[in-house]
């Protein structure tokens, strides 16, 4: 682990050094030095509303993600309990899951309007439908003998869904949730960039209109870090559950 951390640090130092080197030979309005970017970050925090915009974007991501997760879970449970319902929603779910999420933004701009709900709805769609899709498919990847044993032990369909399939689906769902955590940030950023007047996406539009490359880079770094932390938290929850069940030891991770 220490070895890995040392390599990470080395890669970071190398990157910043190369950046420094390049910035000396390039006009500053095109490629500012790392110090200029730090300065731009401090300026945005102190003189502009960076902190508030971070909170606005974060709340949109969290609300959209939670709403999407909840919606996905409810639809998934219903589809596992009732085969007819599953067959009715499956084509729609499959279609929405594979369509690029950004394509829904113009439609949502007209239907929802240019407000907070736009970003939240976009994230909810981006997260919710792949979850349902994954649940329906994960039922097939659970060891059929587990279902067989549960049936001989007297489990009803409800018991199967709530006590076996749903908890076991976490193992299939976790990688998807991590991926969707990253997508949520992309989705919120794009909606803010295109249609909203607050949040980090909006700050980016403003920085672009003033051709402040230092601020643009500062915002890119900030967005990347926030998305990484969000993804890391989800990974942490996944790891804890998997370790508790003994999966990690088996995989020797």
């Amino acid at each position: 682990m220490q070895h890995r951390l040392a390599l990470y640090s080395l890669s970071l130092v190398l990157f910043v050094t190369i950046w420094f080197a390049f910035s000396f030979f390039t006009p500053h309005y095109l490629l500012p030095t790392p110090l200029d970017v730090v300065r731009a970050f401090i300026e945005m925090t102190l003189k502009e509303s960076l902190f508030i915009d971070i909170m606005v974007t974060l709340s949109r991501v969290l609300l959209g993600f939670s709403l999407g997760f909840l919606m996905g879970l409810i639809l998934a449970i219903a589809s596992m309990l009732y085969n007819t319902f599953r067959d009715i929603i499956y084509p729609l779910v499959a279609f929405i899951s594979v369509t690029p999420s950004f394509a829904f933004i113009p439609l949502l701009m007209i239907w929802v309007g240019l407000n907070d709900m736009l970003a939240i709805a976009a994230v909810a769609i981006c997260v919710g439908f792949p979850i349902v899709y994954s649940f329906i498919s994960s039922k097939k990847s659970i060891d059929p003998e587990i279902i067989n044993v549960a049936l001989t032990l007297g489990a009803s369909r409800k018991d199967l869904v709530f006590k076996i399939i749903l908890p076991l689906s976490i193992t299939h769902l976790a990688p998807l949730l991590k991926l969707e955590a990253g997508h949520s940030w992309k989705m919120v950023f794009v909606t803010e960039y295109l249609a909203l007047s607050s949040g980090l996406g909006f700050l980016m539009v403003r920085a672009y209109s003033m051709i402040s490359v230092d601020k643009i880079i500062a915002l890119i770094i900030l967005l990347g870090l926030l998305a990484l932390v969000f993804q890391y938290i989800i990974e942490l929850i996944e790891t804890r559950i998997m370790r508790k069940w003994g999966y990690m030891r088996r995989l020797n991770i």
């Binding site: 003998e145 044993v149 001989t152 032990l153 007297g154 489990a155 009803s156 006590k163 999966y247």
Partner: peptide
């Protein structure tokens, strides 16, 4: 679930998200 047979598959098919006690309790609980 109405035939009253106990089935032990080759893979054991233990429920990985339940402890040993919860696994054994499952049939009685349902």
């Amino acid at each position: 679930w109405k035939r009253n047979v106990g089935y032990v598959p080759q893979s054991n098919a233990l429920f990985p998200h339940m402890t040993v006690e919860e696994n054994i309790l499952f049939g009685l609980k349902v």
